[in-house]
Design a protein around this nucleic acid. Sequence first.
RNA 1: UGGGGAAUGGUGUAACGGUAGCACAACAGACUCUGACUCUGUUUGUCUUGGUUCGAAUCCAGGUUCCCCAGCCA
Length: 559
Amino acid sequence: MTTETVAREAGRDFIRDIVQADLDSGQHKTIVTRFPPEPNGYLHIGHAKSIALNFGIAEEFSGRCHLRFDDTNPTREEQEYIDSIQADVRWLGFDWGNNLFFASDYFERLYEWAEGLILNGLAYVDDQSQDEIRASRGTLTEPGQNSPFRDRSVEENLDLFRRMKAGEFPNGARVLRAKIDMSAGNINLRDPVLYRILHAHHPRTGDTWSIYPSYDYAHGQSDAIEGITHSICTLEFEDHRPLYDWFLDKLPVPSHPHQYEFARLNLTYTLLSKRVLTRLVQDGHVSGWDDPRMPTIAGLKRRGVPPAAIREFVRRIGVAKANSVVDVGMLEFCIREELNRTAPRRMAVLRPLKVVIENYPERQSEEIEAINHPDDPAAGTRKIAFGRELFVEQDDFMENPPKKFFRLSPGSEVRLRYAYFIKCREAVKNAAGEVVELRCTYDPATRGGNAPDGRKVKATLHWLPAAQSKVAEIRVYNQLFASPSPDAGNFAADLNPQSLEVLKDARVEPSLAESNFDTAVQFERQGYFVRDPDSTADGLVFNRTIGLRDSFAKEVAKG
RNA sequence: UGGGGAAUGGUGUAACGGUAGCACAACAGACUCUGACUCUGUUUGUCUUGGUUCGAAUCCAGGUUCCCCAGCCA
């Protein structure tokens, strides 16, 4: 195998190309990446893209990936998020080994380096108010004005900065700023703030500090301390890169990492901004951060989405610099693909319709054998009770069926999966004219599902015995938003009123009540489901992860 | 002429001067004890105008459109 043939492989992207080139040129021997969340919220599927990128690169190139919490703003951060983020990354299937770090671990060193900047005349304490700083920063098209405090002496700056650290001043009284260029076209270079006074309790450093470094000042230096080689972030940080490099050039850092940017994930029918997700939870549009309709990792998990499906999804969508919106259908495909391969099959009747087999003896019962996975004989079989009274799906009966409806209707014959052919004789209605029961006959010769005379049926229905099935609540989830591109500014207007449908008296196979049954299952002809944590010993609850593809429904919809 | 980025089928992405490929979606068909899965086939694309070249998605020049930046958020 020559180097040339190795050069281009499927699944590559511009960042992996850079990494490969750096390895080839000897620029780096070991690749070190990092995933650097701020612990101020729950992770979502957009983070999964970044996680898979950073951990994936480390794994593919035999390097390592750090999990580093960018905990530089104690007013927004909580231990709850530090814990949930670690749980989510692990659940996704990634491992940082011993490489768990916190930017707050570096507060002391960052502070010393800041004094160094002051000593070299590269930073100053500014007494202006926040409004004054904003006003003198200029605009996108006009340069800013120098602060009247910009030329303080080194001694005065040092004294003031030390007193800031000592907690002598109230929040907002002063900031430490880098002395760069107030007329720079790049606004990030117009004397950015390095430290602000924040009398706040930090989840890790407690009340030790009353000043905290800004993202710009902390991030690159943290990368350098950890020996990160490729600091990968999203596009909006592109114009922070000159500042990232400025600090690394001016400070006595142990290494000089390089920052690379890629486009963040956008999905149709989905909003991923923290502001919107927070309001969805706070305003009660969803039940919490782990509501199965949420695009959070916790929500996806509760929904029943397997981590392998998420990994496959982010692998398929690739990594590039162009802003894009991925069709949520791509995610759904990956979920179905994984679940079809792995989920055992069971039968469940979501909206039961009673069926009485008139020619089946009263009080008789027999066991029918059903296979657990059509493509995996090793998954084995199970027994299902069959008797005179059964349930089938309401949708599987139509009194006046249209042309292409193959299921039950008066006079039609269908197969009950694994069991018998049955023929509908009569539909019994209630006073309101609704069909409440089907009177049918079965053909005893068709046991097992095939007719000795070779006659065929056009439909096979799932079913459950009336007596030996369990009642369950089934939560059928659909898109949270009705619009393919919901408006983040007025998201409430784009909410899908049918995002959740609760079916209180569905029926499932008794085996699903077993306490150890927590894996995803396919309810045949319906979709993929997973038991919800709300389940109790006598109150089963299932979430629908996703329905099966339904070409019949599509045809009906087309008319 | 504020600075920084990006434009390839409906969608995402590849092609690094040499046959525009893959996947999702859509459509048609085959198969089927899940109207699922699987299989087969079809449709659809290089933002634009010039230039360089035997040859341009790729290089050059101009234009157009879209995204990001004026937090003591990250």
